[in-house]
Simulated assay, not measured.
Amino acid sequence: MKFLSKYKNKIIIGLLIFIALFIAFKQVQAQKSKDPTVLNPKKDIVVTPVVQNIKSELTLAGSVSASEIANLRFQNSGKLVWIGVKIGDRVKKWQSIASLDKAQLQKSLQTQFNNYRTNLSQFWDTQDKYKDTVVTDTVQRILDRTQYSLDNNVISYEISDMAIKEATLYSPIAGVVTNIDQPLTGTNITPATASFTIINPESVFFKSEIDQAEVTKIYIGQKATIRIDAFPDASYDSEITYISFIPVAGQTSTVYEIRFKLPVDNKNLSYRLGMDGDALITLEQQDNVLVIPLDALNDDNGKTYVWVKNNNDLVKTYVSTGIENESEIQILEGLNSNDSVVIKKI
């Protein structure tokens, strides 16, 4: 205790000096770690440029759709007397789907025919009446009126005949019935209340949307790979078949519809509308080029540089770059395969 009392002040001064030196040492070390020209073995990563293949890819989310979708409606209102299909049925091209009651339509057609015969008789009576007279303006107007009346009767008859033909719906495509608004016969319908939807499962394609900043990078016929979430172990070689000229309506940003071929046999309906997936488009590709990690790049007012290790020093080296993807970038000039590139982790 006497020893501590005797040298107490010296011990305190010594401790304060030690603490000051320790703090100063730490500050120097911290300054060195912040100096980008100094290698920090604990944080920095040293990599070597490698010669390999690199490609830039664009991944777009999308879903399965179909190009042949027929929404069928009657042209006229009437009583629904026959439905020849149900949801899930397969139909052939031009197969009859449903029909309205034709009895009233046929009576209307007969009435129009009778009106036509009556007007035709009146037409010839008028012609006979004025055939030996001088055709004045008044006579000519009478003759014209009878001709117009006869023409209207012909048009009315043709309309009634069209109504009978349109009383039966036919499918313009082969496909599967996916919707029937009114499945019960004996009900009176209008064109808006009785529609039938038929989709051709062999016409499926993959649909996606692409941002305006990227649409200029693609073109029709460009190769792509399609993956469907429902079939995680399968991928399909595809190509772009359609790029919309106008943007998709209702989106918060400007995007365009893009379509891809889906080369599948869909007779068993494995690929259904709305199935989600991704389209992978290769934008650029180079083989046997110099590549480094993207994290190694740094920016200096628009100029790109990397840190190259030279003994214990780091040299700021400007480079020219090419293709890049999410993790790597091609080096065109400034490096070789023997350089040691440092990724700074500050």
Rank of each mutant, 00 (worst) to 15 (best):
D89S: 02
L150W: 14
I87A: 10
G88R: 06
A98H: 02
R117Q: 10
D137N: 14
A163N: 11
S99T: 08
N119W: 01
V176M: 08
A163S: 10
Q147K: 14
L105H: 01
Y157V: 11
K102V: 00
I159H: 10
V177Q: 01
G84Q: 13
I159D: 13
F123A: 12
L120V: 10
D181S: 03
I173N: 00
D128F: 08
Q95L: 06
S160D: 11
N179H: 14
D101M: 01
G88Q: 06
I164V: 06
N188C: 12
N119M: 15
I83F: 12
L120Q: 14
T187H: 04
W82D: 12
K131D: 05
Y170C: 05
T185M: 05
Q106K: 09
N114K: 13
Y116R: 08
I83H: 09
V91A: 04
I180F: 11
R90I: 11
L105S: 00
D161C: 04
I173W: 01
A192W: 10
L184P: 02
L105Y: 04
A192D: 15
D125L: 12
I189A: 02
L105W: 01
A103C: 02
W94L: 04
A167G: 09
Q122N: 13
D181P: 03
Q122F: 15
D181I: 07
D89F: 01
T138Q: 13
D161F: 06
L100V: 04
Q95P: 05
L143E: 13
V135Y: 10
D132C: 00
G84A: 12
D161E: 04
I97E: 05
G186D: 11
Y157D: 12
L80V: 00
K79V: 03
S108R: 06
I189Y: 02
I180T: 09
F123L: 14
P191F: 13
Q104H: 06
D144Y: 08
T138I: 14
V91S: 01
G175E: 04
E166S: 04
G175D: 00
N115C: 04
D181G: 00
F123V: 09
D151Y: 07
Y130R: 06
L143K: 06
S156P: 07
G186Y: 08
K102G: 01
N152I: 14
R117L: 09
D128I: 06
I97D: 05
W94K: 00
T168L: 06
G186S: 12
N179F: 07
V91N: 00
K93V: 09
D137T: 11
S160W: 13
Q112C: 08
Q147T: 14
D137V: 15
F123G: 07
D132G: 03
Y170W: 15
V154D: 07
I155G: 03
I142W: 11
D151N: 10
F123D: 11
T178G: 07
T187W: 02
T168D: 12
V135K: 10
S149M: 12
W82T: 07
V91K: 01
V154F: 15
W82K: 14
G84V: 13
G88P: 07
K129D: 08
T168E: 10
M162C: 05
I97H: 11
D125S: 11
G175V: 02
K107I: 01
R117M: 13
T178P: 03
D151Q: 10
K92F: 00
V177T: 03
Q127I: 10
D137Q: 13
I164A: 01
P191H: 11
Q182K: 04
Q106I: 03
I173F: 03
N179R: 09
T138F: 15
V177K: 00
I97G: 01
L150Q: 15
D132K: 03
A98L: 02
